[in-house]
């Protein structure tokens, strides 16, 4: 068994959200992204001894995650879509920075509450309870196409709202830190 220091496990803990987002950006399928996340965590534990403490941990972890995504894609060809890493990687490294993720989460919680009640219900079923479109369709007794459209509108609303609130939350955080 490899030895992993407390500090290393804390680093690993701190980037879980970023890491999952990065994997999901390359492989936009939740369950497959979760598979890759677990594989990546395992490799990161195994390679703990190789980590240069002066290096950028997130960058190093992303590199390993990228390799795991590629490996996953070679192994399983069922994914409908996977992006080559060079398309979004630079932007992802910036957008998925741990501090930014924390701010984003705050903005998201505000925006989620602002969703109309019916949309919030569908959002809960899909995002929090991780139900399939088919299951949601049965539960709310609406066609699958309508659920897809609603989910698109929910995502769009959240995206626009978060972009708007992000500035507010960031300036609030800056004010607290100053």
């Amino acid at each position: 068994m490899n030895s992993v220091s407390i500090e290393y496990s804390q680093l690993l803990t701190s980037i879980q959200k970023s890491l999952y987002a990065f994997i999901l950006s390359l492989l936009p399928n939740r369950s497959e992204a979760e598979d890759v996340l677990q594989e990546t965590n395992l490799i990161l534990c195994q390679k703990a001894g190789e980590y240069d403490q002066n290096g950028h941990f997130q960058g190093w972890a992303f590199k390993i995650a990228r390799y795991q995504v590629m490996k996953h894609m070679t192994k399983r060809k069922r994914s409908k879509i996977c992006f080559s890493t060079d398309i979004v990687e630079d932007v992802a490294a910036e957008e998925f920075d741990s501090k930014r993720v924390a701010v984003m989460q705050k903005a998201l919680s505000i925006c989620y509450e602002l969703l109309p009640k019916k949309m919030r219900f569908i959002a809960k079923l899909r995002f929090k309870k991780e139900k399939s479109i088919k299951d949601i369709s049965k539960e709310v007794n609406r066609p699958m196409g309508a659920i897809s459209s609603t989910l698109y509108r929910i995502r769009q609303k959240l995206l626009d709202c978060v972009s708007e609130k992000l500035v507010l939350v960031e300036s609030e955080a800056d004010f607290k830190n100053s």
Partner: peptide, 23 residues
């Protein structure tokens, strides 16, 4: 490139829900 940023944000929103309590 502008859509790359929007894409990353959409992904981040989606992924953050993953960490919410399931129940």
């Amino acid at each position: 490139p502008s859509f790359q940023k929007r894409y990353c944000r959409a992904i981040l929103i989606e992924s953050l829900f993953h960490w919410e309590e399931v129940e």
